[in-house]
Design a protein around this nucleic acid. Structure first.
Lengths: 160, 160
DNA sequence: TTCCGTGCAAACAATTTGCAATAGA
DNA sequence: TCTATTGCAAATTGTTTGCACGGAA
């Protein structure tokens, strides 16, 4: 699980080839950037980072590549609240909590996720999708801060 | 809780006046439509319903009115997955589960919501916001159907 | 030599904003 | 009267699509 960036890039590239898809320079750059970022990225963030080296890559290619990677199962998108979708490689954490105040993204422990999932299954019969939609609210720090004082915290736009 | 539409309209109108805001015909029409719909509505749905009687109401007014109603605490928006935000009056159900396959919106029982909330509080220290973001996944029916056969169900676009 | 994947521009969907005109209180 | 609210049009943001060209296999 604690794989190096290089190994993750190689593995992803191999999977693209195995699926019969072509490995283009744009795709390689996108995979590299996703692997090295260590956080969730929007399509726009990926596009502008790549454009720094290769100015003519279009945002359309980024979207198309991300969609294709998701079809193959190599990357996926998460909605962290309002704003654009964010993406990461498939071998990263799967369940997210996004703070509406500071923007921080936390991983929800697997045990907690499966407990919630089974409670909802039992009580309502529903199968929760924790992959594509984050839970939102306030992280521990922001939650404590907001119960102390009325003043909102300076930082990212609130997600509500 | 089982208030009539008329009573809910009256109460909301009174609250608008009490807040010092003006009660315009557009605002009245929006409140009426929200009260009578009995389900979550998008701004566009509200606008086109109102335009049937009063063709020149603009979508901008609908958005501004909904925002204002939310500031006053009379209505609020929920994101049910992909697609536009949906709105309802404040005296309706607060916690939602949206099926990605059939589009159905279910209310999550209060007991379950508070149990989930306290588990997350205890384990991560986070305060979950259940008002503005629905949980998503498959409802009981769609979940059963999908485990039987591989064919997707005809209906609304999947939300994933 | 194939076509898959690309860049570009234009289309699209949801939402917001500027501004002069209007209509509530 | 006074100014909050409106309609209209245009701007913004995030994402998708059509199409002819270029480059991976």
């Amino acid at each position: 699980v604690a794989t190096s960036d290089a190994a993750r890039i190689e593995r992803t590239v191999a999977a693209i080839r195995k699926s019969g898809d072509r490995l283009t320079s744009a795709r390689l750059a996108i995979v590299r950037h996703l692997a090295r970022a260590g956080r969730h990225l929007t399509a726009e963030e990926i596009a502008s980072a790549i454009r720094a080296r290769d100015p003519q890559v279009s945002i359309a290619t980024v979207y198309r590549t991300l969609d294709r990677l998701e079809e193959i199962g190599l990357a996926y998108h998460v909605h962290l609240g309002h704003g654009p979708a964010t993406w990461h490689l498939d071998d990263e954490a799967h369940h997210h909590f996004a703070c509406q105040s500071c923007g921080q993204v936390l991983e929800i422990p697997e045990a907690l996720v499966s407990s919630i999932r089974s409670q909802i299954k039992e009580s309502m019969g529903c199968e929760v999708d924790t992959r594509h939609f984050a839970m939102t609210g306030l992280c521990a720090t922001c939650s404590a801060r907001q119960s102390q004082c009325a003043e909102p915290v300076v930082g990212l736009e609130p997600t509500t």
